[in-house]
């Protein structure tokens, strides 16, 4: 479990440093795989069937379908990459480190004595790093990656505080995540099709 947590933290930190869209999608693939694994391990410890199902669903949706759709999209965006993020790469790495410290502080404040302190703090840190990516990256794909990191983080919070939600709700959440990414990919594709860059920061017609 500790190894998983370390890998999850490393993937989140790496995400703040990449410029190539393809690398980012591959990292998110590894990250989602770790989340699925964590879910499976928790299931093994608790001996609950529904956790296995959740783990398999995570694997299918977040390791299979979503990265596949994103990689497909990235293939078509040959000239796009995250050149000049709003916050430079080094600065965002530092902010991400601060986020990790903050997450530990927050957990100790809000839920003192929780038995899975490290997992919880990692989860909160991932949520914050995801938010950071969404706010400071220009490329559409990078923002989607940020969103998935955030979802992974929140999913991990659920996993570590309550051993996951009831299955029917979890299935709803998986479905929603899937559809959200599909909708975002459709929008990205349309941006590309209408001859525009997928640089979101250039979309600033609507004001006031």
């Amino acid at each position: 479990m500790n190894l998983l947590i370390i890998i999850l933290l490393i993937t989140s930190l790496l995400l703040t440093r990449v410029a190539l869209l393809k690398t980012a999608v591959n990292i998110i693939l590894i990250q989602s795989f770790m989340v699925a694994l964590a879910c499976g391990i928790e299931g093994m410890e608790a001996g609950e069937l529904h956790m296995y199902i959740a783990a398999i669903l995570t694997a299918i949706i977040k390791v299979g379908i979503i990265p596949y759709a994103l990689l497909n999209m990235v293939e078509k965006l040959q000239y796009e990459k995250e050149d000049h993020p709003i916050l430079t790469v080094d600065a965002s790495s530092i902010v991400a480190c601060i986020a990790i410290v903050l997450a530990y502080g927050l957990i100790d404040q809000a839920l003192p004595g929780a038995d899975s302190r490290d997992a919880l703090a990692t989860a909160v840190a991932m949520t914050l790093i995801g938010l950071l990516l969404i706010m400071t990256r220009r490329q559409a794909i990078m923002q989607i990656v940020g969103l998935i990191t955030m979802e992974n983080g929140i999913y991990l919070v659920g996993l570590s505080v309550t051993k996951g939600l009831p299955l029917i709700i979890e299935m709803g959440i998986f479905f929603d995540v899937l559809v959200a990414v599909v909708v975002l990919v459709i929008l990205t594709r349309r941006l590309k099709l209408s001859g525009m860059s997928t640089d979101i920061s250039r979309l600033k017609k609507l004001k006031g």
């Binding site: 949520t127 929140i154 017609k205």
Partner: peptide, 19 residues
Amino acid sequence: HSALEAAWKYVMVCTVGIC
């Protein structure tokens, strides 16, 4: 152009909020 911008903002802001 503007519809895509609006929709992108809509999905991003609302999904983050809803997360």
